[in-house]
Computed example of a mutant assay.
Amino acid sequence: MSVMQVEVVSSEQNIYSGEASFVVVPTVQGELGIYPRHEPIMSLVRPGALRLTVPGETEELLVAVSGGLLEVQPDKITVLADVAVRSEEMDQARAEEVKKAAEARISKAADDESLAKAHAALAAAIAQLKTLDYLRSQKNK
């Protein structure tokens, strides 16, 4: 089985560093499926679920990403995420609460900085909710 090196890093921590045989990244152009030896590309990442097929694991590794940058080389993928959270660290109720609070902060933002922070919080919450929805849909199959 052919594999590639994958690095998923947020501004706060290294989320995943290891091998994968297939990766799906939510990009601004849509979901991008990447196998080893993929053509080099760069793309902006949109909020959503980053899915990794790790050799020897039966289930996909899921990471919610709120945006960032993707770089693909034939033997390595790097995702520099604004915010990234592993699926086992997510909570539906907390993500919905953060989303509502961020939407309220957006409507009341008094300056560009507070508006940008509220948009970032909203993107992170949306990414977690999309990832949790994907998890639910996979369990119902």
Rank of each mutant, 00 (worst) to 15 (best):
V3G: 02
Y134R: 14
K100Y: 01
K141M: 03
A118V: 05
A101I: 02
V79I: 15
V28T: 15
E103W: 04
Q128A: 04
D91G: 11
G18Y: 08
Y35H: 11
H119N: 12
V98W: 01
A104V: 03
S17I: 09
P36Q: 12
A109I: 08
V6M: 04
E7G: 01
R51D: 00
V24P: 01
V24Q: 04
V23A: 03
F22T: 00
V65H: 04
V28N: 12
A116Q: 06
M1A: 15
V72S: 00
H38M: 02
R46P: 00
V9G: 09
E7A: 08
E12G: 05
A101S: 09
A127H: 06
L115H: 06
A81V: 08
G18I: 03
L129Q: 11
F22A: 07
H38A: 09
H38L: 07
A20L: 03
Q138C: 05
L115N: 05
V98N: 06
G67I: 11
A93C: 00
G30M: 06
D91M: 07
M1R: 13
R105V: 01
A127Y: 08
E97N: 09
V85E: 15
M4C: 04
S107F: 01
L70P: 03
P26I: 07
I126F: 04
A123P: 00
G67A: 09
Q5C: 02
P47C: 11
Q128L: 01
S2C: 00
I34T: 01
Q138Y: 00
G18K: 06
Q13T: 15
S17Q: 15
E7P: 00
R105P: 02
L50I: 02
V65P: 03
S137L: 12
L44H: 10
G30P: 06
M1H: 13
L115E: 08
P26Q: 08
L122F: 09
E103R: 07
S107P: 00
G33S: 07
E71C: 03
S11P: 00
Y35E: 09
E7L: 14
D91P: 11
